[in-house]
């Protein structure tokens, strides 16, 4: 049974999100706008296909939520090292593991709200010049939910294994950037496979490959990308793995009651 305390903790997080909402949207839109302008107009003049702008848009929308979510890790680490609001949450009338599930869901929900807003703004500002004839609402709705759950639990996992704020720079340099950049952000997996097959096989271990490929299928159609449904299944598996190890690590780290 989901406890009232759990629902209210999520409610509190959403309530607080309103303070950062416009800042988050502006930041995301600047990033997205730059990406699409360069990829749709500049890169096409350098020989990239006419759909490269949409290709980048699909990947960028998923990426901005990831980056925003990862950037909230210091807040959690600061709290653990400092004021310790988490100690209060861990004594509320709910199972202690739910406190960590709540963090992941908050990351996911905040990211999802951000993405919806960015999508609407992108449509208003940029979609008239982008070809979206193959856009699938159903597939996008499915991958939207999976992507944000994955981002939420990945953020929890990374936070759990980051010992302190001192190591946060390493998270970007050693984990997030390589995962994202080699995870088919600027190219699709098939191109990678043709150029560097070994790296392509290794990138199948990288969940962001599936996130970006599946998002592109929703925008551009199945042809030329990893199978959409396989991507979804693999991502669900990754969500479960990230949830299990992230919660377990936090429970041990904070000496919680199992």
């Amino acid at each position: 049974m989901i406890s009232r305390a759990f629902i209210e903790l999520l409610n509190r997080d959403l309530y607080l999100f309103r303070f950062d909402y416009f800042k988050a949207i502006i930041n995301s839109m600047i990033w997205l706008f730059c990406q699409v302008i360069v990829s749709n107009y500049i890169m096409s003049a350098m020989g990239m296909g006419g759909k490269y702008g949409v290709f980048m848009l699909a990947g960028s929308i998923a990426s901005v939520s990831l980056f925003r979510s990862i950037n909230t890790i210091p807040i959690l680490l600061n709290d653990i090292e400092g004021e310790g609001a988490i100690s209060y949450y861990l004594t509320l009338p709910l199972k202690q593991y739910l406190v960590f599930v709540r963090y992941a869901l908050s990351f996911a929900i905040n990211g999802a709200i951000n993405t919806i807003s960015v999508l609407i703004l992108s449509k208003l500002l940029m979609w008239p010049v982008l070809d979206l004839s193959n856009f699938s609402i159903l597939k996008y709705a499915i991958i939207f939910v999976i992507t944000h759950l994955f981002i939420g639990f990945l953020t929890l996992l990374i936070a759990a294994y980051t010992p302190s704020m001192r190591y946060f720079e390493n998270v970007w340099s050693r984990i997030v950037f390589p995962m994202w950049f080699l995870g088919c952000f600027q190219f699709n997996w098939l191109v990678l496979y043709k150029q560097l097959p070994t790296l392509a096989y290794i990138s199948l271990l990288n969940p962001l490959t599936y996130v970006l490929e599946a998002n592109r299928v929703a925008f551009l159609g199945q042809t030329g990308y990893l199978n959409f449904w396989v991507c979804c299944l693999v991502l669900i598996w990754f969500i479960m793995i990230a949830a299990y190890f992230g919660i377990r690590k936090f429970m041990r780290r904070l000496d919680c009651i199992c």
Partner: peptide, 18 residues
């Protein structure tokens, strides 16, 4: 444990309010 927590109130050393 959940019912027990309704019976206690914790005031930690650090004022950990939002």
């Amino acid at each position: 444990l959940i019912n027990y927590r309704y019976t206690i109130g914790l005031c930690p050393q650090k004022p950990n309010v939002d």
